[in-house]
């Protein structure tokens, strides 16, 4: 195989990868997975007496998975405009997510120390908090962009 054919093959494979979307039915599956994770979080918090750290981390991961499935599912009527709107929503979510990760720790630290002296120490955000925020923003912005298109 010469280098041109190899590059074409690579380009095709890469394009196929970046255009990958799940069918629309997966959107509802994503909602079900996320809802299940939220219910499990409530059960762990209010009904299970032991600390069950393993359950906490599993429910967080399941919630992220459910929202990711929702995020990469196709629209009911997918066309070039919805693809453009989705790309826009990912870009906005990324920028807002980075700003959130930078600003929020200072806000939390400031507010906590203003309310009572010797409040919480400065701590950065965890990966779950940033990822869930970005996914939420993406889904919300995409929904709004579609509504106002």
């Amino acid at each position: 195989m010469d280098s041109k054919k190899f590059l074409d093959c690579e380009r095709k494979r890469f394009n196929k990868f970046i255009k990958f979307r799940l069918p629309h039915t997966f959107f509802n599956i994503g909602i079900a997975i996320a809802a299940l994770a939220i219910v499990a979080m409530f059960i762990r918090a209010f009904l299970i007496e032991s600390d069950a750290e393993w359950l906490k981390s599993i429910t967080k991961q399941v919630l992220l998975l459910g929202m990711l499935v929702m995020s990469i599912s196709k629209d009911k009527e997918e066309d070039e405009m919805t693809i453009a709107l989705r790309a826009q929503s990912y870009a906005i979510a990324f920028v807002v997510g980075v700003l959130y990760a930078i600003v929020l720790p200072y806000v939390e630290f400031g507010v906590s120390n203003m309310v009572h002296a010797g409040g919480e120490s400065f701590k950065t955000l965890g990966d779950f908090q940033v990822l869930i925020f970005m996914l939420m923003i993406q889904l919300m912005i995409y929904h709004n962009l579609k509504r106002y298109r």
């Binding site: 009527e77 066309d79 070039e80 405009m81 919805t82 579609k146 298109r149």
Partner: peptide
């Protein structure tokens, strides 16, 4: 043309 009605509207 295989798009949604909202796309034509936009």
């Amino acid at each position: 043309i295989g798009v949604s009605r909202q796309t034509i509207n936009s």
